[in-house]
């Protein structure tokens, strides 16, 4: 129980990795997080390559601190979201990382492939900003407060 408590406290202090190339969406997500009173630090990766770099760090350096949760868009430049997910799940150190796919796509195949590759959750970004804020709020509550993370 002790251990668990410390982990949960840890989760709230750890940063959130937002993988998103659209600056509007970045700002909207930040606004939504702010509105939802989620005060964790948010680091933003503009493409898949950058996201993997942040997660894996440079060679020869100390491995970077892991985020509490990764909010992953699918349609991003260079390495796309699903490939980033696959890379995360196949890398030993970070394979238990919480990854929430947060995307505009509601395509069935995207959803299925996302889960196949081991996404913890799939959330479609609503157009309605209020709904979006609500979604982000629920997301934060669930994944950062309720959920017991593995890493």
């Amino acid at each position: 129980m002790e251990y668990s408590k410390s982990r949960k406290a840890d989760t709230l202090k750890r940063h959130i990795l937002l993988v998103e190339d659209n600056p509007d969406d970045v700002d909207l997500t930040l606004m939504a997080l702010e509105k939802s009173n989620i005060l964790n630090e948010v680091r933003v990766a503009r493409d898949g390559e950058e996201a993997l770099q942040i997660l894996l760090g440079r060679e020869g350096e100390e491995p970077p601190e892991l985020p509490a949760v990764v909010l992953l868009d699918l349609n991003i430049p260079k390495v796309n979201g699903l490939e980033v997910l696959r890379e995360i799940r196949s890398t030993e150190r970070i394979r238990r990382l919480l990854v929430v796919i947060l995307t505009s796509s509601g395509e069935e195949q995207d959803i299925l492939r996302g889960y196949d590759l081991g996404a913890n959750s799939y959330i479609r970004k609503p157009v309605d900003f209020e709904k979006f804020v609500d979604a982000v709020k629920q997301l934060g509550l669930y994944w950062l407060v309720l959920n017991e993370p593995a890493v």
């Binding site: 659209n22 509007d24 969406d25 700002d27 909207l28 606004m31 939504a32 505009s104 970004k125 609503p126 157009v127 309605d128 900003f129 979006f132």
Partner: peptide, 8 residues
């Protein structure tokens, strides 16, 4: 995405 931008 742009719609969300407009709305947001």
């Amino acid at each position: 995405a742009p719609l969300r931008g407009i709305d947001g």
